[in-house]
Simulated scan of single mutants.
Amino acid sequence: MIDTHCHLDLYPNPGRVINEVDKRGIFVIAVTTTPKAFLGNLRLAEGRKRIRVAVGLHPELVAERYREIDEVQKHMARTKYVGEIGVDGSPDHAASARLQADVFNTLLKTAEELGGKVLSIHSRGAARAVLDNLEKNVSKSIPILHWFTGSRKELDRAMELDCWFSVGPAMLRSRKGRELAFAMPRHRILTETDGPFGTNEHCSLMPWDVELALPIMADAWKCSIEEADQQIRSNFRELVESQSLAT
């Protein structure tokens, strides 16, 4: 199982979750919300072969913490993975949308200067702004649009830009989420939970709960659950083995 977008450090007992991840053999990309959280996650995940820590600055925090961008850029040299970054256009954060876009633009440029990174990207209510910046700045990095909620036209544009997508049980619970996921190219889809924020019946999704997405995708792809699982695994291998990325 593969969870490409999970906030491991924000569970009430992250150590217990990490031990269970190890026990079950799950590969996790641990996204972070601040550069300080990145350092904390490195300590939490030390010695865990299947956990990769991404450095990020969550767009919801940019208004108050944008001065930490220098720290994010410094830490980007230490990891192949960057996230959670992006732009949030929801009403609570619309006032800082321009600042968010500026920070996002700067981080994309840094990723390119470093040879390209795997990017886990937040685009709620701001798909157009995110795609504009990707089109302008990205040629080496691999953008993964996490829990994409844009329009079908914006999805088509994202596919034209060779974006990847991470989908999970929480996204697939809604009709729109399923429709978008079913329209995404099969070879560009990965699984995620967005735990502990992603939920299932009011309970936080755990990394191993990505398996809840497999029957839904198998039904959409007209294949077995095992074949859907193998497709996701194959996609992930392609992602991590990309020779265009900096180590």
Results as ranks from 00 to 15, higher is better:
A77C: 08
D162N: 15
I18P: 01
K74Y: 15
E241T: 10
T4W: 02
G40R: 14
N137H: 14
N137W: 02
S244G: 15
D22E: 15
E68Y: 13
R128W: 08
V55I: 15
R233H: 06
A95S: 11
N13S: 11
E71A: 15
Q73C: 15
R78Y: 12
V240F: 03
S234H: 10
T33Y: 06
A228N: 05
R65F: 15
I2Y: 13
D209C: 04
C203I: 10
L61D: 11
G195F: 03
H146I: 04
D9K: 14
L145H: 06
L190K: 02
K49G: 09
S123Q: 05
R50P: 02
A45M: 06
I232T: 07
G116C: 10
Y66P: 00
D88Q: 09
D229W: 13
C6K: 11
T247N: 14
I69K: 05
R173Q: 14
P207N: 08
I2W: 06
R48D: 07
S244P: 00
A246L: 02
C6G: 11
I189S: 03
T32A: 10
L131P: 02
M1G: 06
L57P: 01
V138D: 02
L8W: 07
I189W: 03
A220K: 10
R43K: 12
V240Y: 00
I144G: 00
G150R: 08
H146F: 08
R78Q: 15
G15H: 14
T32L: 12
D194P: 07
A77G: 13
Q243A: 11
L145M: 11
V87S: 02
I189M: 13
E112W: 00
R175D: 14
K109G: 05
A101N: 10
C223N: 04
A170I: 03
G116Y: 09
Q73S: 13
G83A: 08
F182I: 12
V72Q: 03
E211M: 08
Q230D: 14
S123Y: 01
R186W: 08
A30Q: 03
D156S: 15
A95M: 06
R24N: 08
I189E: 02
N137K: 06
V240A: 04
H5V: 08
D229S: 14
G83E: 04
S234W: 05
R128H: 02
F104H: 00
Y66C: 05
Y81G: 00
L134Q: 01
S139H: 15
D22M: 13
I51G: 04
L119V: 07
R152C: 06
P35N: 09
I69Y: 05
M206P: 00
L57T: 00
E84S: 06
D219R: 12
D162L: 09
G47S: 09
I121E: 00
K74S: 11
G89W: 09
E84G: 06
K153Y: 12
I225T: 14
S120L: 12
V167F: 06
L161P: 04
M206D: 05
P91N: 10
N13C: 04
T149Y: 03
M206A: 07
R124V: 07
Y66V: 01
L57G: 01
L245C: 09
S244K: 12
C6H: 07
R124Y: 15
G86Q: 01
H122D: 04
M206K: 11
P169L: 03
A220F: 11
A37H: 08
G195A: 09
I26F: 03
Q100S: 01
I69S: 02
A126P: 12
H75C: 14
N137D: 01
T247R: 13
